[in-house]
C-alpha cells in the first residue's frame, strides 16, 4: 500500500453544516462518564460564559471523522479503509464547541509518507462556524497497513 505524495496540500470543499445538539453533547458526555455540570446543564454552562452546554474536548472528532471521509473515500487517492488504523490525534481549540453551533469542516492533506510497506496520511480539518468563526483545528494521522 502506498499513497501518492503529490496529494499533499490538497484541500477539499467545505462540508455541509453540522448542527451541534444539546442532547448529543449530553449523550457523548454520559458515554465517556464525564459528569461536569457544564456538559449537561445549560445554566451551568452559562455560568462559565458559554451560550449553552459545552462539549468535552474530544467531541469534535464526531464531526471531523465523518467529514474526513471526503479524503478516505477519494477514489483518486485510493485509501483502503479496511487497513486503516488510527495513529495520532490532536486538537487545537480557539474555543470549545457548544450546543447550537453550526459547524463546517475544511479538510486538507498535510502529510503523506510511505515506509516499511505502510502508508501514513495526516489530515487537518479546520472546523469553523458556518459564519466563518474558527472553533478548532483537528489533526489525524492514519496508518494504512501494508499487506505483509
Amino acid at each position: 500500500m502506498s499513497l501518492d505524495p503529490s496529494f499533499v496540500g490538497r484541500t477539499y470543499p467545505p462540508t455541509a453544516p453540522y448542527q451541534v445538539g444539546r442532547e448529543k453533547i449530553r449523550e457523548f458526555a454520559t458515554a465517556i462518564g464525564a459528569t461536569e455540570p457544564a456538559y449537561h446543564d445549560s445554566a451551568a454552562a452559562r455560568a462559565l460564559g458559554h451560550p449553552d452546554v459545552v462539549a468535552p474536548p474530544t467531541f469534535p472528532v464526531l464531526i471531523t471523522m465523518a467529514a474526513s471521509q471526503q479524503i478516505v473515500d477519494d477514489p483518486a487517492l485510493g485509501v483502503d479503509y479496511s487497513r486503516v488504523v488510527h495513529g495520532d490525534q490532536r486538537f487545537a481549540y480557539t474555543r470549545p464547541v457548544v450546543a447550537g453551533d453550526e459547524l463546517v469542516c475544511v479538510n486538507t492533506i498535510e502529510e503523506i509518507s510511505n515506509r516499511g510497506g505502510h502508508a501514513f496520511l495526516t489530515t487537518r480539518t479546520d472546523v469553523t462556524t458556518s459564519a466563518g468563526e474558527p472553533v478548532v483545528a483537528v489533526w489525524s494521522k492514519l496508518v494504512v497497513r501494508g499487506e505483509s
Binding site: A38, D88, R90
Partner: peptide, 13 residues
C-alpha cells in the same frame, strides 16, 4: 478544574 480549559490536546496511539 474546568471543563472548558483545554487549549491543545494530542496523543499517539
Amino acid at each position: 478544574g474546568a471543563p472548558d480549559a483545554v487549549v491543545e490536546f494530542g496523543v499517539r496511539f
